[in-house]
Design a protein around this nucleic acid. Structure first.
Lengths: 239, 239
DNA sequence: GCAGTTTTCGCCTTACAATCGAAAACATGG
DNA sequence: CCATGTTTTCGATTGTAAGGCGAAAACTGC
């Protein structure tokens, strides 16, 4: 099938690394110093070498911006291939989703920073579309996999986990329901320990950890939906 | 980030086009006449041109093997990028899943034929892995999307649809349950017509069509599971 | 008609998500 | 030290979807 004659396009890998910081989804971006798109913010990544596959490549290039040990999960998203997606020659991009646990704060280079997805700075090329794709993938997989392990600290309370899920999903969920759903799926393991309450008091929360820190899908494809205004549940008591 | 110096790898697109024929999942393959891997069977596809994105390219190259109007659905699967995946120079591949409705029988070139997934001939390069990926994607999406429209004819009976789902999923499902699940999701529309029974008689089946022939996910992420030996349902009557 | 076949429908149970109210466990202020 | 407020956790309850079985419906062929 070598019928077409064309200059082989370049190929780069790009990673949208997400983390929940201060209750909001953030993405790791670095500010371009040189044209094209100087001053705009870009995803970590770069050219694919000819002795590595794309998974190896994205991990290598990510290491230039953050400590790889801090990235809890990496998976391929899609190829972005519009002919004019970058100026000055054709470059295809294989995009990845990366996740960092909320309790780590990696050391970053000067040009690199976390930005909330709700308020992105001007982004380079088609990188904003890649970020949107990463967000959608994360939200979908939180519902039917154990991907929460890549957002949560090693040990956490249910209400802490609820905040993370709320921030990632973009809508509130019930802590009661979250605990039961994840427990029934066998994803949650109680540590036996409990956390000391804050300055305002309150019952100390029991801590949990994820049973498995490798991605797998739950056989029940259930969804953590946004709250359903008038639906199931015990009927309100009328006084 | 133009720090690396390497020869840009070539890029090709490949499509695993699936269809249910005679109650079994088949894939469209063509037999290579020239080295490398002469005589082995390969997926349709070829080099990416520099004026087209990968979606456009795979549709163009697919048209060399089948009538594009016969392909009901095309979606991107993943990039295959092992440095040695093809001999004689690096070539990345963006793989696609294609689906053909079971009632069409496209005219094929001499070198091209349908092969059952359960009994594949020797395949070229990593194409068997791509076929496996396409099968897995189809099975997953049948459960939580309306993707059945791309396998089924325009009009069908429930038992006909059951055979298609059984073949695609690889395990039997209940016709009763299939009808109720798809109906509740709003995917099925009764045509009002009914089919004439076979030579062995029987009640004529009512025909249905899919409400929407564009892919969309069902908000309930339910699964069409394999039959559950001792589970719910009306208890058997003990005589 | 009568027996056999296939489809369709009703009734049932299980599973699980979702909600509410209250009890448990702790801090703080009087 | 007790009352009050706050936060977490658990029990009770319901809605909904899915899966299963049996019987009725609708047809063919003898």
């Amino acid at each position: 099938m070598a019928d077409d004659s064309s200059i082989p396009p370049g190929h780069e890998v790009l990673a949208a690394v997400l983390q929940i910081r201060a209750g909001e989804l953030h993405v790791l971006l670095w500010q371009r110093a040189l044209p094209p798109d100087a001053g705009r913010w870009a995803l970590p990544g770069g050219r694919l070498r000819d002795d590595e596959d794309v998974e190896t490549s994205v991990r290598r290039q990510l290491a230039a911006k953050v400590d790889l040990a801090d990235v809890a999960h990496v998976e391929q998203l899609a190829v972005f291939s519009a002919p004019d997606r970058v100026p000055g020659g054709r470059v295809l991009a294989t995009a990845f989703l990366g996740l960092v646990q909320s309790d780590v704060n990696p050391h970053l280079p000067e040009d690199t920073a976390w930005h909330p997805l709700a308020d992105l700075p001007p982004t380079a090329f088609d990188h904003d579309a890649i970020v949107a794709r990463a967000r959608d993938r994360l939200r979908a997989k939180l519902s039917y996999t154990n991907l929460g392990f890549a957002l949560a600290p090693a040990e956490f309370t249910i209400s802490g986990l609820r905040e993370l899920y709320t921030a990632a999903l973009g809508h509130p969920i019930s802590a009661t329901n979250l605990q039961r759903v994840l427990t029934r799926r066998g994803l949650l393991v109680p540590t036996g320990r409990r956390v000391t309450p804050g300055p305002s008091g309150g019952r100390p929360g029991a801590t949990f950890r994820f049973a498995d820190r490798n991605l797998h899908v739950t056989d029940a494809f259930a969804v953590l939906r946004p709250p359903h205004p008038p639906s199931g549940g015990r009927p309100p008591v009328v006084p």
